[in-house]
Design a protein around this nucleic acid. Sequence first.
DNA 1: GACATATATGAGGATAGCCTCAGTTAGGCT
DNA 2: AGCCTAACTGAGGCTATCCTCATATATGTC
Lengths: 199, 199
Amino acid sequence: MASDKASSNLLKARTPQRERGRMRVAALMAAGAELFVEKGFAGTTMTEIAARAGAAIGTLYLFFPTKEALAQAILKEHADHLSAELDALAERSVGRAPTEIADALFSVLGSFLADRPAYSAVLDLPGDDAWLRSVRARRREQIAALFAKADPPLPGEQAERLAIIVPQLMRIPLSLLGERKLRDGVLEELRLMLRHHLS
Amino acid sequence: MASDKASSNLLKARTPQRERGRMRVAALMAAGAELFVEKGFAGTTMTEIAARAGAAIGTLYLFFPTKEALAQAILKEHADHLSAELDALAERSVGRAPTEIADALFSVLGSFLADRPAYSAVLDLPGDDAWLRSVRARRREQIAALFAKADPPLPGEQAERLAIIVPQLMRIPLSLLGERKLRDGVLEELRLMLRHHLS
DNA sequence: GACATATATGAGGATAGCCTCAGTTAGGCT
DNA sequence: AGCCTAACTGAGGCTATCCTCATATATGTC
């Protein structure tokens, strides 16, 4: 084992070593996330991302070899965060009733999707990357497990269906950015729909 | 009124006059719709659209002055079609119960969205064109009116909320292209959810 | 046939965007 | 101070895409 530091250096991408680097990477990812939400992946230019982060274009490419790599890094961070929250929720909710779990899930997903709109923006990219599929699959499994371990447990097939449905439900109010009151009303209507359905 | 034919000729776009022209325009719009669904608006090139329609690039630009104009034409055709179907549904359903109306709406929207995936693909474009907003608003009003005229009528505010929710619900199963059985299950689950909610 | 108009073509101009690279600056370690 | 490496820079190469235009063919009318 001559070199013990090498590994994930495929010629160009660099992983931040010092504090300043880590801040820069964070700023670049934040700028990218904002712009992907505002103008879509294809509608956003790397130059614009660098500018919003207050960096030169070369710096952006120092840490992310590709526009796609940047999107992937953003999605990975958010997806890992959601996965952790779902794990925590799973612990909290063993043996709870399905309606209670549904409410808790509403709360977790609701604030997650509202705080991190880039998650949806990147997850919705056209094309079916293996990467995207695996992120979606993980989310599905975690949510399905939640319902399948409720008390009384939901049938496995229904749990799977709900694992697909609920995250999509939560995205509906997010499209109503300008109309706060209507957005809250829609969210409440959706919550009631699910409760009625699970009773 | 000297000229009774002029009007919408703004220097470049041409409206098909003969039968061959109409066929070409139809083929071009169909090709564009397919590709916008497969690869997104930004991911599709005008050259590719022309090629799939079996036309030269110049021919595409003969009828559509711009890529955006093509997308708008596609959306307009589909939106008009949906609007007509919703009008017909409105006539059929005066005085019906909300649950019945919901089922009928499921059926109309379900087959419309499945047959014309480009409608959603174009309607979801980022940016908020006045044009897109007006299409969305018209759909919302038509569906809200449906529920508001039910027997017993739903409160206006709830009708508006459902007008936003239901079309989004119907899009959920469409993302499950590969898994036919799951897709049907999800659709049925959604139908039941709405019925339970309206009972 | 002669004329007019709709339809068709595809090389190329103009522009924009991704990414490279040769070199510079900053920060820490001995 | 001297050195090493991370961090940084932005002009420009290369390619891809939108759209134009000068020209050619088909279709109809008299």
